[in-house]
């Protein structure tokens, strides 16, 4: 799978050096809404300038090239192991070539592997699909924003959050209030609701793959997403936490069935540098 490996190196480069068009458009749209001569405008103008320079000079827009997270859809009959090996190989090449910052640190020795590979690193999620093409979504998830995420087990008494979508709304607002500017707002927020902790954290992250304009297929969730975006932007945290109207540019909510006794909510926060890119590959 040599050619696929090279294509994944290119995917890394695209993700690290250029923002998806919907994210860049949302940041541009936010700029004139902030007050003239405000810190919010200072921050947004530097961010937009940074996006331009990174694309032009083909350098990673942020020094934290994050944890690479792959969501891979694989047609029936294609080996997951071979795909994994192509991704690991591509990760090593991309780290050297682009370059990416080496971010994989051994828990026991504190040594950095130097090439962004290690135990469970990068993060890979495989799913079989009926289609004929391999679809690879790559997200370079910065850790400033990853650290801002929270997991809730409803009910949460101190938030008066019960086991319903209103309770979910309170959890999301709690996460963003606590995050303040630590994770580089304007944020994009993914929410996952369901039965088990591991599943909702993945579901929340998966929501971050949806484009800003993507409308939730469930009307009630679509309304929740819109309301949350309005609410979050009332908090006044603003770009980079320096105050202002734009604390978030998107909220996306996903649901799984839950157990009668469990109601887990995971809130995954993504920085303005929402670096995701997609590769479709015909075998």
């Amino acid at each position: 799978m040599m050619n696929l490996r090279d294509a994944i190196v290119e995917l890394y480069k695209k993700a690290a050096t250029s923002l998806p068009s919907d994210i860049e458009a949302a940041l541009r749209y936010a700029y004139p809404k902030e007050e003239k001569k405000s810190n919010a405008r200072v921050a947004l103008s530097a961010i937009l300038e940074n996006i331009r320079i990174a694309k032009e000079t083909q350098r990673p827009m942020c020094q934290d090239t994050g944890v690479p997270v792959f969501f891979i859809k694989v047609p029936v009959g294609i080996s997951h192991l071979e795909l994994k090996s192509a991704i690991i190989g591509a990760t090593r090449i991309a780290t050297e070539k682009i370059p990416l910052r080496a971010n994989a640190v051994d828990i026991l020795t504190d040594k950095n592997s130097g090439d962004n590979t290690g135990i469970g690193f990068p993060v890979l999620y495989f799913e079989e699909t009926k289609g004929k093409k391999i679809t690879i979504d790559l997200m370079l998830k910065g850790s400033g924003c990853e650290n801002a995420g929270q997991l809730y087990k409803l009910p949460v008494e101190e938030l008066k959050a019960e086991r319903d979508l209103e309770g979910v709304r309170k959890c999301v607002l709690d996460t963003i209030y606590k995050a303040q500017g630590k994770g580089c707002p304007p944020y994009i927020i993914g929410v996952g609701i369901g039965a088990s902790k591991d599943q909702v954290t993945k579901l929340a992250k998966e929501q971050l793959l949806r484009r800003i304009e993507d409308k939730n297929k469930h009307e009630v969730l679509s309304e929740l997403e819109k309301r949350l975006l309005r609410d979050i932007n009332q908090l006044g945290i603003g770009p980079l936490g320096l105050g202002g109207k734009t604390t978030a540019i998107g909220v996306k909510v996903g649901v799984n069935h839950r157990h009668p006794a469990s109601y887990f909510v995971d809130v995954s926060v993504c920085c303005w540098a929402d670096r995701r890119a997609r590769l479709t590959w015909k075998m």
Partner: peptide, 13 residues
């Protein structure tokens, strides 16, 4: 001092 989060290349320059 608060500088521009995420502006990796803008600041490197």
């Amino acid at each position: 001092l608060h500088t521009i989060g995420g502006a990796g290349v803008y600041l490197a320059d």
